[in-house]
Design a protein around this nucleic acid. Structure first.
Lengths: 158, 158
DNA sequence: CTATATTGGTTGCTATCACAACTATTCTAA
DNA sequence: TTAGAATAGTTGTGATAGCAACCAATATAG
């Protein structure tokens, strides 16, 4: 517990130096740029693209599995899927061994789009990482992963 | 401009290793935890808190300045402000030298809340950074800032 | 001056998100 | 078996985000 209310911190919060804020701004910026590209070039939202990305990696996944994978509410996945189905980028078939479940996969068209988006994404990532040396990339990678692991273990009411 | 379409990248995108995705997940996780605290303990949304944080740092700021500072659409700031005004956490007065402008500041109550939220925020940040050494914190700091600077310079249609 | 552009701020509209309720199917345990 | 819990997925609803249109005040240019 070891929580004390002595003033070990400043009494004013400088937003620009506050880690959660900075990560949020950074992430918004980085996602925003690529979201624009996905939208303009492929008419896909980030969520839609993430669903397709999962299906590219794991064909036959269920909506629930996709939802868990990309950490997006299943209702949101459900509605995004409706659009992808309507555009025939994704198809689904009822799993015969468990008729609650629907196995999802990219259609031929969906796969064509997928194959176009993948390199664009990698190019963008590459462009971002230009500002780091090889060493820095590895460090950044490691630190991000560690922070994520650590954050997962934090109890909001600790 | 030195863009090649030779397959220097894999043909499948592994979402979990894709930087923009990882940053987004990380940021969501980190903001999500603290959002819960703000909501439960102070009935504030992240946006509302950010507005208050700016006003704590810069009393007398205008809605436009707040909006620019926290990089949130002015319409969203406007609506969030309505709530803060209704709860008497923030007050505003028309600037007499420019009657379009309204100078915002925390009320007495708002300041009390502010003083409670600040240490909670710092504690949380501290808790997050536990997983880094002093050196790693500095490195992470530097890399984040550099990446942000760099991202700002990227042309989406480059 | 006065027409026009600019700026600070609000409002309308639509899309998206979060959460809960609901349907249908399958699993579990008496 | 069969009642109740669990699971896959959809839908309803309210809150928030993002964009554009808008109003009012001010600044600028002819």
């Amino acid at each position: 517990m070891s929580k004390r209310s002595t003033s070990k911190h400043p009494s004013i919060l400088t937003l620009e130096r506050f880690l959660p804020y900075r990560l949020s701004i950074l992430s918004n910026r980085i996602s925003g740029i690529i979201a624009e590209t996905y939208r303009d070039k492929f008419a896909l939202s980030i969520t839609e693209w993430r669903i397709m990305a999962v299906l590219g990696e794991y064909p036959g996944a269920s909506a629930d599995e996709v939802s868990a994978k990309i950490q997006i509410e299943k209702s949101i996945v459900s509605r995004a899927l409706q659009k992808l189905l309507a555009r025939h980028l994704v198809e689904r078939e009822v799993d015969e061994t468990d008729r609650r479940r629907q196995n999802l996969s990219l259609t031929k068209t969906g796969m064509e789009i997928y194959k176009q988006v993948v390199p664009v994404s990698y190019e963008y990532e590459e462009q971002l990482l230009e500002c780091f040396s090889k060493n820095e990339r590895e460090t950044f990678d490691k630190l991000i992963d560690r922070l994520y692991q650590h954050a997962e273990s934090i109890d909001p009411n600790g």
